Measured scan of single mutants.
Amino acid sequence: MGMPNRKYADGEVVMGRWPGSVLYYEVQVTSYDDASHLYTVKYKDGTELALKESDIRLQS
């Protein structure tokens, strides 16, 4: 078993793309699913969504 190939840690605050949009919002990573390679993130309004790594970026 190798290390999970994840870029962002639980609790890390990053920018997540809103689905169907080009806009990124501040989100907190809450979990990562090794099987689906999706991150569960929480937006400031409390919305929780699963995002692909390509829809997440570090805060500038």
Rank of each mutant, 00 (worst) to 15 (best):
Met1Pro: 15
Leu38His: 08
Val14Lys: 00
Pro4Lys: 07
Tyr32Cys: 02
Tyr25Met: 11
Leu58Ala: 15
Ser36Leu: 13
Pro19Ser: 04
Val22Glu: 15
Gly46His: 04
Tyr24Gly: 01
Ser21Asn: 06
Met1Ser: 15
Lys52Thr: 14
Glu48Thr: 13
Leu58His: 14
Glu26Asn: 05
Asp10Cys: 05
Tyr8Asp: 01
Gly11Met: 05
Ser36Met: 11
Glu53Ile: 04
Val29Glu: 00
Ala35Arg: 10
Met3Glu: 15
Tyr25His: 09
Met15Arg: 06
Asp34Ser: 08
Asp34Tyr: 08
Ser36Phe: 07
Val13Phe: 13
Pro4Trp: 04
Glu12Asp: 12
Gly11Tyr: 06
Thr40Leu: 13
Gly16Val: 14
Ile56Lys: 00
Ser60His: 12
Tyr39Pro: 01
Gly20His: 07
Ile56Gln: 00
Glu53Trp: 04
Pro19Val: 03
Ser60Tyr: 08
Arg57Leu: 10
Asp34Gly: 08
Ser60Cys: 14
Asp10Trp: 03
Met1Tyr: 01
Asp45Asn: 08
Gly16Ile: 15
Asp45Leu: 02
Ala9Ser: 10
Glu53Tyr: 04
Glu53Pro: 06
Val22Met: 15
Gly46Gln: 04
Val13Asp: 04
Glu12Pro: 01
Glu12Gln: 13
Val27Ser: 04
Glu53Lys: 02
Ala35His: 11
Arg6Glu: 02
Thr40Lys: 10
Val41Gly: 02
Arg17Asn: 04
Val29Pro: 00
Gly11Gln: 05
Ala9Ile: 08
Asp55Trp: 05
Gly2Asp: 15
Ala9Val: 09
Ser31Ala: 12
Pro4Ala: 10
Tyr43Leu: 14
Thr30Arg: 08
Asp55Pro: 00
Met1Phe: 03
Asp45Tyr: 03
Val22Trp: 12
Ala9Thr: 08
Glu53Phe: 04
Glu26Asp: 05
Met1Arg: 13
Lys7Ile: 11
Gly46Cys: 06
Val29Phe: 00
Gly46Phe: 04
Asp55Thr: 02
Met15Tyr: 11
Gln59Ile: 14
Asp10Thr: 09
Pro19Gly: 06
Pro4Gly: 15
Arg17Gln: 05
Ser36Ala: 10
Leu23Val: 13
Tyr8Ala: 03
Arg17Gly: 02
Arg17Leu: 09
Pro19Asp: 05
Tyr39Ser: 01
Val29Gly: 00
Asp10Leu: 07
Ala50Cys: 13
Leu58Thr: 14
Gly2Val: 06
Tyr32Ala: 00
Ser60Met: 12
Ala35Asn: 12
Ile56Tyr: 00
Arg17Asp: 00
Leu49Phe: 15
Glu12Phe: 04
Lys44His: 12
Asp55Ser: 05
Val29Ile: 14
Tyr8Gln: 01
Arg57Asp: 06
Thr30Asp: 06
Leu49Ala: 10
Ser54Asp: 13
Tyr43Asp: 10
Arg6Asn: 05
Lys44Phe: 10
Glu53Thr: 04
Ser36Asp: 08
Asp33Lys: 01
Tyr39His: 02
Gly2Gln: 09
Gly16Met: 07
Tyr24Asp: 03
Val27Asp: 00
Trp18Asp: 03
Ser21Trp: 03
Tyr8Ser: 01
Met15Asn: 04
Met3Gln: 15
Gly11Pro: 02
Gly46Asn: 06
Trp18Thr: 07
Val14His: 02
Asp33Pro: 00
Lys44Thr: 09
Val13Trp: 13
Val22Pro: 12
Ser21Tyr: 04
Asp33Ile: 03
Gly2Asn: 06
Thr30Glu: 10
Met3Asp: 14
Leu58Asp: 14
Glu26Ser: 07
Lys7Met: 10
Lys7Pro: 04
Ile56Gly: 01
Ser60Glu: 13
Tyr25Glu: 09
Asp45Gly: 04
Tyr8Phe: 13
Asp10Ser: 06
Glu26Met: 09
Ala9Tyr: 10
Ile56Arg: 01
Gly11His: 06
Ser21Met: 06
Val22Cys: 15
Lys7Asp: 02
Tyr8Trp: 09
Arg17Ser: 03
Gly16His: 04
Ser36Val: 08
Thr30Ala: 09
Lys52His: 13
Gly11Glu: 04
Gly16Thr: 08
Tyr32Phe: 10
Val41Lys: 00
Met1Val: 15
Leu38Val: 09
Ser31Gln: 08
Ser60Trp: 08
Tyr25Ala: 08
Pro19Asn: 06
Ala50Met: 15
Ala50Pro: 08
Asn5Thr: 14
Val13Ala: 06
